[in-house]
């Protein structure tokens, strides 16, 4: 996931501390893909090394070392103690512009455990693939219901009537929609697999991995 580009894009709003960046990221995406603050600072160090961001403000204590330590000792209060904040450079702005103008590559899809599981199961005797599909569909449906419920409840902590909050609400609900559509598409694919397997088992008497209800 493009943590690097996301953080860089958020820095276009103005200089920020690591904690602020994490909060800004999560306000838009919910906590679907939680970032730990160590990850934020590691990314910022690399961005600094690559000339995409510059450190603008040195207070007293640099909290980068602490960020790598115990989670319980992390400060949630941005710049109260001496911290560094980061500002985007021209090169950074160019990378952000490039990111927004280039489609996310889809030709090399990520490994999909479910598709692999089904592909293996369908070739092996003794796997009840009908049951496998049904159980997965139920699990995916439960997740879809939970996403819908979360969406109905609205973004936690959203402030009604504030413009900033309204655009963050929109961003948040679009991420939820993405989860809903993903789940829906998985269920449709499972329905499709089930129909194809049933047809196959009717056509070839030998294929018995999915059994009609009558014979159960």
């Amino acid at each position: 996931m493009s943590v690097r580009q996301s953080l860089l894009a958020l820095l276009e709003q103005g200089p920020m501390y690591g904690y602020q960046l994490r909060a800004e990221f999560e306000q838009r995406t919910g906590a679907t893909w939680p970032l730990n603050v160590g990850q934020v600072y590691t990314t910022l160090s690399r961005l600094e090394r690559d000339g995409m961001v510059a450190v603008v403000d040195h207070g007293g204590v640099d909290d980068r070392t602490e960020a790598d330590g115990e989670a319980g000792t992390q400060s949630e209060s941005g710049g109260e103690r001496g911290q560094v904040s980061y500002q985007i450079t021209e090169a950074g702005r160019a990378e952000v512009a490039e990111w927004f103008s280039t489609p996310v590559p889809r030709t090399q899809p990520a490994r999909d455990e479910l598709a692999i599981k089904l592909a293996i199961a369908v070739t092996l005797p003794g796997v009840d693939i009908g049951r496998l599909i049904q159980q997965q569909r139920t699990a995916t449906m439960s997740a879809l219901q939970a996403h819908t419920r979360t969406k109905r409840a609205g973004r936690p902590g959203a402030l009604v009537g504030e413009i900033q909050s309204a655009t963050e609400d929109l961003a948040w609900s679009l991420v939820l929609d993405s989860l809903v559509f993903d789940a829906e598409s998985e269920i449709r694919w499972l329905d499709h697999c089930e129909a194809r397997l049933r047809r196959a088992s009717h056509q070839t008497k030998t294929a018995s991995s999915i059994q009609p209800e009558e014979s159960r």
Binding site: E26, Q27, G30, A31, T32, P34, R137, T138, A139, M141, S142, A143, Q145, A146, H147, T148, R149, T150, R155, P156, G157, L176, L179
Partner: peptide, 17 residues
């Protein structure tokens, strides 16, 4: 039959928002 997972089963609700 599927029922919605509990309120704590959802990643969006587990986050520190």
């Amino acid at each position: 039959e599927a029922a919605a997972s509990g309120a704590y089963g959802d990643p969006l609700e587990q986050g520190a928002l």
